[in-house]
Nucleic acid binder design. Structure first.
Lengths: 323, 323
DNA sequence: CTGAAAGCGCTTACAG
DNA sequence: CTGAAAGCGCTTACAG
């Protein structure tokens, strides 16, 4: 059997309450000598408080629920890791739920996390659908991590996607290769697309062709093949995620195009793998650690201000843009 | 406030016990009419049993603790995902702990997971050090997932690293480029190294040069640069992980070596990203899903036989070997 | 400074 | 078929 507080009390010759006072350093004072006896008993017996019992009694699990679409996407993995780090620093464990990206699975996971009594919920999701509110718990603070836009009624936090895309595209345009193509996932007209368009407008250059594909390596490969396989292929392309950019590099290779000589590429996200692609990717980096820190603070520190928090993206220049 | 069993009982006009009988479908029978009333009350009030209270009472959390070295390594992320999937199918949630790869952090995480009352522990780790046993919990079944060798006193499960490395190296040797180099992490003399050596012996060819480096893209880059930068560089190389192989590809690119023309490469692990490297990597794939399934079964189904279970690796032929 | 007792929300023997 | 009661391991007012 595992050792309980009662065992410690018996061994130390004190009441169970005193054991709690020592373990929690309060709320009642304990004589130094008594405390020493208790600590020795704890040491000898190897006592660890039962977190489940504490959670039930305190009404707090010291657990944060974190929902991500798909852990096999390095970006989500990076978010998971960052949230875990920050949470650990504050004495919280993270209950992570990967959902395959479906809204229904996501809702189900939110429900089970809530039933687990998590103290807070972080949703790193692309799906900020309105029916999400139905799965919200009154007592459980929640934040959407990594949304690009304001979500009515829900606190959210994300990178400046418009600015990031504009910067990335502008950098490409500055190389003077003319119109910049776009490989992008998600719904038409989202912020990265707007940023890409704005950069063209700023430069007085026509917007390049668009190819849409899933947010995956495969999606990037397909969209890239379409974009680059046609007659009027652009000399440069902005890609809405690193994962897709990896697919675009593959598409370029299959078509015999050299990057950056025949095709300049800038991607979005800034995950580690971009440092090791061939060539290394110039990318617009999301400040993942800062975002995770902000998200955890948002959800753990009550009344942390505004509903929507935007963090800046940063251009990381490497080889794929032809600099 | 969240709704409790007592609320449901009051609403349905029955005793709290009956609510439990309905929710758990036992252990006492309930009249159909009564059950219907209870179910309606549950529906109307939106009742969900408090998992924490259930855990405390049952002495079982329906939680599996899973320790991985580093979630930013796609292989570990894939294991995390696979374990999560299998566990979910069996009604378990997974408490995931990423450890930065250090033994001390790993032990600490094991302790906190145990304090959380996990029903079982899966350690996906490279560190099967003897002092691990000290952090084992008597009542908590445990399995080491992804160890290559037998660990005395601890049930473990892993791929046939020796066979996999031998197969991968043999495939390279069959191309007739002479001695095959090795880029490898971990301790000298481990099973992949032995397999690589055995393949050379089988073929009657001398073993090629070895370069050691961390199990990371960076480690592969450094080791690869050393191996390929010297005067007597091998024409082909076996790499002990995909991550390192990505680094080796980068090293080759920096040295102006074409893969596979100047250098043939085979790696180990078979994560998704190998399909999108440039060129696509020929790799020895670990059966991650099957391993996760076996690990969960090992730890949830009591008395599932042997202490050590080995699963076969499979060669996936793509472009980097020059086929 | 220390201890006896209530109660967190459940499950489940036990009695009716 | 239904209910009153004990108890899982804690925290924390309350009393001494």
């Amino acid at each position: 059997m595992t050792v309980t507080r009662a065992d410690v009390a018996r061994y130390a010759g004190v009441s169970p309450a005193v054991v709690s006072y020592v373990v929690n350093d309060g709320p009642r004072p304990v004589a130094a000598a008594t405390a020493a006896k208790v600590r020795e008993a704890i040491e000898v017996l190897g006592y660890r408080p039962n977190t489940t019992a504490q959670a039930l009694r305190r009404g707090s699990s010291r657990l944060i629920g974190h929902v991500v679409p798909d852990l096999s996407n390095p970006l989500w993995a990076q978010f998971a890791l960052a949230v875990d780090d920050v949470a650990a620093q504050r004495g919280y464990d993270v209950l992570l739920a990967s959902t395959d990206g479906g809204a229904e699975a996501e809702h189900r996971r939110i429900d089970t996390l809530a039933a687990r009594g998590v103290d807070a919920l972080i949703l790193t999701s692309v799906l900020a659908r309105p029916d999400l509110v139905d799965h919200t718990r009154p007592g459980v603070p929640l934040v959407l991590l990594n949304t690009f836009f304001e979500v009515p009624g829900l606190p959210s936090l994300g990178v400046d996607a418009f600015g990031g895309a504009r910067t990335g595209t502008a950098h490409l345009l500055a190389h003077g290769h003319g119109p910049v193509g776009l490989v992008i996932g998600g719904e038409a007209g989202e912020l990265r697309e707007q940023g890409w368009r704005a950069a063209a407008r700023d430069a007085g250059v026509a917007a390049g062709p668009i190819a849409r594909g899933e947010f995956s390596r495969h999606g990037g490969l397909e969209a890239g093949s379409r974009l680059l396989g046609g007659p009027d292929r652009p000399r440069s392309v902005f890609v809405s995620s690193d994962l897709q950019a990896v697919g675009v590099l593959r598409a370029a290779a299959e078509l015999g195009l050299r990057v950056p000589q025949d095709l300049a590429v800038v991607s979005f996200d800034g995950t580690v793998e971009t440092e090791f692609t061939n060539p290394q990717l110039t990318t617009v980096r999301q400040p993942v650690a800062a975002m995770a820190r902000a998200a955890v603070a948002r959800v753990l520190d009550p009344g942390t201000g505004e509903e929507r928090q935007v963090l800046p993206a940063e251009l990381v220049v490497r080889a794929s843009c032809g600099c």
